[in-house]
Design a protein around this nucleic acid. Structure first.
Lengths: 230, 230
DNA sequence: CAGATGAGTTAGACAAGACTAATTGCGCGA
DNA sequence: TCGCGCAATTAGTCTTGTCTAACTCATCTG
């Protein structure tokens, strides 16, 4: 396995996209195979395969043909850096510019490759060093350390449970719009009024009122249960 | 001359760089030849020649072989848009993030290709719709209209003249650092105490005190004379 | 345990945009 | 006005990252 010829050479935007994606897949505990990455990045499996080989050559991932990749120490450092940029930029877009959280992922994907570290850090300070992106995912530190993903799917809640939303699935803009309109955002408290065992819908009470959500939404909300000490 | 096949297709980052540069050269009234653009963008003359041909094909510039290019209406619209992004980003970096004005041109060059229009406009509003970049160059409007470049070189000032700095040469970071340290920035008032006819140095009085500047600096400051009605 | 099936990989091509080297054209000075 | 020097263009190559099509491997099923 040959190491990268240039020590700390800047990564191409493409490489950054692949690495960040591998990182995000690993973060939820899935194994990283060609098809998964190809689909998420919207490229062909062939392109993904080719990039896996390049990244392995440069010591950023381990690659076993037909068996997927996983990040090396170097790769993880690089990837956490990129994800950090992405999430800080998302925060910036929502908190300072007032852009809807359903659009900031796409915007950040375009912007993240172009931000000098110094700019990211200045934004971070200005925002008061936020811990998470607007969807509740942790912002990796400068040292590469990242908090564990918070919360379990709201599907796991039973009637009578109380919980706090910690993060939401960030991939689908339409879903995000729905969630925001219903006040289902990180930090919000919810209580499960009832679970319909037939169709899987749940009746929730939030600060704003009562609403019924289907499985799609229940799977997209990640919550911490609150022990009811009343 | 074949028009662009895609109406309003997004421009590549490379095209944007060339167009913006052509725009800036035109703005100071120079003719735009291959060598000039090549040097400013740090690419070979051959690459520039090839790009001129492509831009002409797409109807963004008029191109006469061996005689340079100039922007078409479409090209000017596109270019002003890019320059607009660049200058808004520079303002953002200095005014909101506190980054030194000697570095924001370079940063903005990296960032300008990745900012969605909506983000540029949100930043602009947040900054209170500034008229110029930190170096004093006008920010083109959404309609493509751009104010004329303000000021004449401070070289043209004589002893006893009073003036206000309108803009400064933005190309050399070292020079910009010098200028800032001496308080020579857009909006600042200066008075010419003396002009040394032998070596061309000028003694200036600013709000902060008296200083002597050489020709290099005098050529880099663009000022409006103030008629002394005392 | 032999196919079938589908995911993954290889092969080959292409587009953008850069480079160097070779050539061409313009304009100035003698 | 001839030719010289320099700027500009053309010719040809390289790199990066993509694609489609063809092939290969692993696995699941009958």
């Amino acid at each position: 396995m040959v190491e990268s010829p240039e020590r700390n050479a800047p990564l191409s935007a493409s490489r950054e996209d692949y690495l960040a994606d591998i990182y995000r897949i690993q973060a939820v505990g899935q194994s990283v195979n060609t098809g998964e990455v190809a689909q998420r990045l919207g490229v062909s499996a062939a392109s993904t395969s080719a990039m896996f080989k390049r990244l392995a050559q440069e010591g950023l991932v381990h690659y076993e043909s037909y068996n997927g990749v996983w990040l090396t120490k170097n790769g993880e450092r690089a990837a956490s850096h990129i994800v950090r940029r992405h999430r800080v930029i998302e925060r910036f877009l929502t908190d300072m510019l007032g852009i809807g959280w359903e659009r900031v992922d796409e915007f950040a994907n375009r912007m993240e490759h172009a931000f000098p570290d110094e700019v990211v850090e200045a934004i971070e300070r200005l925002l008061g060093d936020p811990d998470t992106c607007p969807h509740g995912y942790p912002i990796p530190g400068l040292d590469g350390e990242t908090a564990a993903l918070a919360g379990l799917p709201a599907e796991t809640l039973a009637a009578g449970d109380h919980a706090v939303i910690r993060r939401v699935d960030e991939t689908d803009p339409e879903l995000l719009l729905h969630l925001r309109e219903r006040g289902l955002m990180p930090g919000k408290a919810i209580a499960v009024v009832a679970v319909n065992q037939v169709d899987g819908t749940r009746t929730l009470r939030t600060g704003d009122g009562t609403l019924v959500v289907g499985q799609r939404i229940a799977r997209s909300l990640f919550v911490d249960r609150v022990v009811d000490d009343a």
